[in-house]
Amino acid sequence: MTLTQHDIDQEIAAAHAAYEKRVAEGAPVEHHPRRDYAPYRSSVLRHPKQPPVAVDVRQDPELVELHSPAFGERDITETDNDLTRQHTGEPIGERITVSGRLLDRDGRPVRGQLIEIWQANSAGRYAHRREQHDAPLDPHFTGVGRTLTDAGGRYRFTTVQPGPYPWRNHVNAWRPAHIHFSVFGTAFTQRLVTQMYFPNDPLFPYDPILQSVTDDAARQRLVATYDHSLSVPEFSLGYHWDIVLDGPRATWIEEGR
């Protein structure tokens, strides 16, 4: 049986309604997707059925997970955060500047940590071998970047606007334009891989990956804001996107050292 967008729309609506009902009945707000989210078909066989075992980090301040791997200047080069300068020629597409802050749950900046990004080119094609989409590759664009956050937790990338692309979750499935982010915090428990979207994309309601975040406010936090002050005259359009890491981390006061 062919799986249509209409089928997926109905599943998305049902999952959303079930979430709203749970919250109305007093269940906590869910900031993250559930791993079991059937409209995204790849999740069906890849989510654990047993609940996770909770580890209370306050019981053991020595946990290795309360530390994070270190990254430094050796791990990046000057052009790593400028995806338009990694080849001899200019990539095709609308140049953009993406910048924001990396914060913990208390709103404190996370300094000197690694942010990695990857994305499709302006035609919606990844420079990835297994990618089947027949949009053109751009010899001047790989779509991979990395940077370290500065003393204020800030990061900044120069790249081109990625294109939307089709995928095979169902017939006529299209991903809204997005940039993938991989982020480290001060603790390994704060590890985050996510995706940043662009404002007002008409594909939002149709995409089961974005809609897997069933909380409306949480989903909004995945969408960057156009920021004219970040736009570079005669060069690029600016987008602002702050990232807030979840997960417990060491609280030095509690450790009393």
Binding site: H31, H32, R129, H180, S182, I209, S212
Partner: peptide
């Protein structure tokens, strides 16, 4: 960051199928 109630986690998303070159 002056409004603690607005400091809420960025949702996680799948790494997807195309991270292999990145």
């Amino acid at each position: 960051t002056d409004r603690p109630e607005s400091v809420l986690p960025t949702p996680s998303h799948t790494v997807g199928p195309f991270y292999g070159y990145a």
